[in-house]
Nucleic acid binder design. Structure first.
Lengths: 203, 203, 203, 203
DNA sequence: AATGAATGAGCCTTCATTCAT
DNA sequence: GATGAATGAAGGCTCATTCAT
């Protein structure tokens, strides 16, 4: 898993970390190449431009996040599904091991590039539609617009802890809402969401 | 109020717009000065550095956002308070008129600068504590940690629609969650939050 | 004449020499700035780009060549006019003192840039029309097309010694057709041209 | 002759076109190889360096131009010889079919490379000496230096229409002195040259 | 109080060339 | 006989900042 992979793969990995840490503009091709142990010209050789490398990196991040923490929507039990989805989301955005992926996405949202369109269609829309279908199963009475508000209510709460992390760290210290809190956060979000839907009072 | 103000004030206004649109790194001192109708050296003359101008701009943005949409927590009725808070938040982050302020904050969260510490303490902590106190009044039984999860549940949902705007625009069109949806969003968020708290079923 | 002129003027002079010696692509902004004793960023500051500097340099070269060796077409005597024109042309293209101007033009002809259009209209067309008018005075019987062939016959011979210089130097040594030959070349070109026109047999 | 030749031959052909169009510096090894349908490393493999390829290309261009439009100096009649030489020169430099060869030479003259020495000796000197001999046959009275001025008067006029083409195109449109004008240009140049020599008044 | 000229550091990109296969 | 991957050098340009006026 950590053997010397090809230059291209190493660049992709290094780019993810640097882009996440410094942003597209802040990241320098130099630093990416150095971190990847590659020549300065390697980015242009393998990807054509910094921009194109970024695009590829974003795709790669979503792809590998999905592989790592897949969100399945095919179970029977809605409450269980909700819990599973919430945990999967939190881990995806939050988990320390690949935490740069979460930061990368956060940056892309704050400062969308042309790459966002594709990523939104390919990776985010299915997620939204998955939750939407879940809500529909729990509350077939809601019209699509109302349903969607519930959907975003759920997703919004998950995303918040990634999004607001910089502030939370500064106000409450980095431990207060760290990775080890994921189970607690997940339980709270899931159960309050279910309550909102009128599905259950206590897990 | 709209007479030809001093160079300093014009710079602050121009910087807000440019920083919001392009980010700290993307914004150039040149473009800010041009927009402000000031000399290229004016930024360094009045603020010392681009960094310092940014800090000042961020403060300025929060200050004027608070003046414009103050969040009051001194009313009697908790449900009414929650509704008022949610609307105030959404307008603050969302309203088109000064929408660059929302973008500016979004950027700062995605890419925190040293200025965030101060802003978090001065402007965000009071907000969190206000909501926290509100939750305490509604549910004195909760311990502080649990209370905070509710607090963030509320804030998270408000912030989401600003945060995810780029994706929502791309997936559902810019109208779907535009400014005119604020009342509807606010009502949903507030009422589902109250339900979560066990406070009411119907406003 | 050699006091420390402004940076802009020094850049223009240095650029002329370097562009003439190395061509547009071969010339580096670095070397131009060094030769001008200016900072590396000076070119972009004063001219906006290497391209724009080149354009300005070309204009400057023609302008100062014209100032230095003006071609007057207002005399009475056609043969004298022809001689005067030929010498002025040869000196303009050939004279060692500012010889880089000749090289610069030669390069521009071999590899025209967008700047050529303007230079052709502003500086070359008047020259052609001047000679054309001269020919017309000598031979009113010719139709415009035929007249023009004579015009180009004259100009072509002048230009040749600049154009072919690299070959002539290599085949016959740099002295054979050097600057000190200008009077002899001029006399030959002028008198054979006049003979062609049927104007005189011997000056 | 048009079957899929070897890589080397294809490179030579492609290089001619690209060097003519873009100049030595402007041409990239990449574009040459692409046009030749060869690998990026093919140039270095077959020729050792871009420089060496250029040298070879220049030789090739002169060789094939000479093969295509040979200049013969062995006829009896001087006027006829002059006419034939002029037309051959004009076609060589001018003809659209292989027009890149003319451009290539023009560039080499404006920006001589080390390859010019050899080309000048091998291909240009014989030309000059041929015309020189022609002039000598017509005017045995002239001393060598004077003779040479006539020689260059002739060659200069031929070369001019290639050399000044960019300006002529811009000032009079691309049709005014296009390929179809070669006979007219040739006749004018030849007959006025003969007149200069005192040989004839009317062909 | 304000500015025009100038600067130094750094960035992305291009390109000819090399080398193992 | 030929190639795909990789590299080192260099180039044009941008930008925040400085400084004399």
């Amino acid at each position: 898993m950590d053997e010397p992979r090809g230059t291209r793969a190493r660049l992709l990995e290094a780019a993810g970390e640097v882009f996440a840490a410094e942003g597209f503009r802040g990241a320098t091709v130099r630093s990416i190449c150095e971190r990847a142990g590659a020549n300065l010209a390697a980015v242009n050789y393998h990807f054509g431009s910094k921009q194109a490398l970024y695009r590829e990196t974003l795709r790669h991040a979503f792809e590998s996040a999905r592989r790592r923490h897949p969100a399945r929507f095919d179970g029977e039990d809605v409450p269980e599904q909700v819990r599973s989805f919430v945990l999967s989301m939190l881990r995806r955005l939050y988990s320390v091991g690949r935490s740069w992926q979460g930061r990368l996405v956060a940056r892309e949202l704050a400062d969308p590039s042309e790459a966002l369109q594709e990523v939104a269609e390919t990776h985010i829309r299915p997620l939204i539609e998955g939750v939407d279908a879940l809500v529909e199963r729990a509350r077939p009475d809601l019209d699509p617009d109302a349903r969607r508000l519930y959907t975003f209510g759920l997703i919004g709460q998950c995303v918040f802890f990634r999004h607001a992390r910089p502030v939370l760290d500064r106000l409450f210290g980095p431990e207060a809402f760290g990775e080890e809190q994921i189970p607690a956060l997940g339980e709270h979000i899931a159960s309050s969401f279910l309550k909102t839907l009128g599905l259950e009072v206590r897990a």
